[in-house]
Write a protein that binds this DNA or RNA. Sequence first.
RNA 1: GGGCGCUUAGCUCAGUGGCAAGAGCGCUGCUUUUACACAGCAGUGGUCACUGGUUCGAAUCCAGUAGCGCCCA
Length: 808
Amino acid sequence: MRGKKLRLPIVGRVIPIVEDDYVVMAVEQGGDPADTKAQFATGFLKVTPAHDPNDWEIGIRHGVAAINVMAPDASISDRHGWEDVSAEARAFVGLSREDARTAIVAWFKANGLLEGVKPYRHSVGHSYRSHVPVEPYLSEQWYVRVTDDRLRGAALRSMNPAQRDGGAAAATGVAHGATSSTAANAAAVGDGEITFYPPRYAKTFQHWHENIRDWCISRQLWWGHRIPVWSAEVAANDVVDRAAVDAARGELVGCNGAWRTMGCSEAVRRRPDGVYERFVCVAEHADSVAIPALTAAGFRQDEDVLDTWFSSALWPLSTLGWPDPARFDMQGLLEKWNPSAVLSTAREIITLWVSRMVMFNRYFLGGRVPFKHVFIHAMVQDGFGQKMSKSLGNGVDPRDIIQTHGADAMRFTLVQMTTDTQDVRMPVDMVDPWSGEMFSPRTITDAAGYTVADPMQVSPKDPSKKITSAYGAATGKATPSTDAPLALNTSARFDVGRNFANKVWNATRFALGNLTPVAGDPSVDPATRPLVDRWIVARLSHALATYERALAGYRFNDAADATYDFVWREVCDWYLEAIKPTVKTDAAQQQVLRTVLDASLRLLHPQMPFITEQLWPAVAATGQAGLRGVHVPAAPLCARAGWPSVDASVTDRAALATFGRVQQLVDEIRTLRGARQVLPKRKITLLAPAVVRALVAEAGGVIEALAGIGEVADLPTERPAGAVPIAFEGQELLLVNFADAVDLGAERVRLDKVVTEKLRLISGFEGKLGNPGYLAKAKPELVAETRAMLDEAKADLDAARRSLDALR
RNA sequence: GGGCGCUUAGCUCAGUGGCAAGAGCGCUGCUUUUACACAGCAGUGGUCACUGGUUCGAAUCCAGUAGCGCCCA
């Protein structure tokens, strides 16, 4: 059939048969049996290049004419490109496209040409607003030639070289503002200045620009910036350079006419019908003059508006007064805030908005980039990994979270849960309007396959009471009423932040109760303080460093964890508990506490602005915080308080190591107390060798306070009756007055477990050290560490065995 | 079809070559000890999706497989 033609029914037009890979062959013709299309394919396809994008491509490949048979209202029309209307086809002109399709089938049937109709599932694009199927339609649109090097090239050159082409530095993170200015060829303004966080998103940016196509900016919408192009048909003899225009075969040709002198751009083209058309793009500053003149001359403005991303791309410029800052009284803003430091946005925005801002900013501002860093944040999904949406009722409203958990709780939780490796799930709970309690809703699967809350829920407290879910209300499947009130959505995930806020509040309250209001003495030297004070200062320094490192890499969850761990785990759990016996009478310790508290509020403030600001004046009223080497200058507001700084010299490594031993000993004793359910108020006696007693003494009462020790004494030669042994640093310690009656059987079981565990460890370490490859290739300090751990495990094993023997 | 991720405790997530894999929630036990029960102390809980490879050593690096998600076409 190659090269043959056929007559198209109804229309009567003779059309060519072409061959194209797009056509799916039937299975019997060699089509893929796994392809459902191949199962009913015929190997033939009628194409309409003017009304289908795939057909359009086929038309281009084979030179098939695109004949438009529709009016802009999508009715069948003979006035928009379809000229050879046959008598038979005339009956269809004027019908709606739906009616026309039905009528065509009816015509085929009536003429005995219809072989069959088969059902076929496929997907058709629908308008997101009106929900009608989208009808591809040939029309003229304005484009931006983004493939021009001044746009696409400039965007690619703006990338940090370490992140381009998957640069090796991208994997390890990139220093701020690295511009590789050492390159021999002097880089142009803005080149290499944009860095992505996390670095992998640079690839998205690069890939997009390398494959970018010219950008259609015409949109047939009501809202938006109207395209500032005016046009009118002109007489042939009004076209100055007619030869060039004719040669351009319908393309626009720029020209220097009267409009150009007003500052507008001007172009002419010759339409396929031979008529000349003049286009004038009106410059913003020429509005008042050009537009009345154009109107008077019979020009009409394009009906379309700009793509929303075209308008958005102007954001870094127009918000700062561009193109005429003086006119908007915005002088200097562009110079001060463009480029800005960081743009925070979502993944899909990289191509839609980031790209366009970069191209426009560089184009209009002599190469300047609009921002230096692009931070791509995670997205929050519901508990089933679905996007939160209003229509599914599976979203949470920040205002509801503020009501159920508080603003600081919401903020902190979001910061802490939003990591840079993946999107996060937030199981959505509901608030029972009857009881105020939070509960997990019963779910159903909707028609589209989404997991959603059952429209009608029942109160977890009283199953006779009904509740309308957000999904029910959003879909109209249930209507909130006094009998079935609407439940707010929330999430138990925010409990973390609420509990933390509560902790911060109460810890501060406690500290305030222990601080005697004085002037405050920032000259107190931490080095002169007891172990626990030196330790908490070192930990403050560590928390600050962790926080700063996290922030520099836009890892906000790490920053949140740093404050959470420092404030809760270290300040509250250890420091406040440890100083309870001493702080009231120790002015210098109060100064340490005052400083730790003050610095904690500064750390917390970006994550919990309200509660910290509320606490700030109360803390400030206790006196000037600060220590020698720990700087927290006074400030009237927490929001304006400087970031704390700790001199490196203040970090006492010995204190960190010693306090680590203290914690280990306390943990050992506490574990045993917990296992034997020894009441907190019961004070026990610790019998220990000199080295352990020295540690207890150095800790300055901390071990006694935290482990419930009443007395510490030397190990007697004779083991006291009822003494319970523990192993610590390879030594055997004894706890006396531990319980009224010691269950020897339980102690043996416990010690047997210790022996088993130590044997397991020892075999692991010995296995490592018995491996010649490990000894030869692992770092020497690592090998030494393994040896030390082996020795300690062996000593612990011996101590546990001695204890076991003593119990027999 | 192309690209980028993800799969670790019941749940939500950390952990990019080296101790015995962590946190929060949940669960279990004890404690209402004058900051906090939205708490404290202790405990239980994991063949790090699967298969192979590299390495003295792999949750971590490489290849493949399976499943899930997003972006682009």
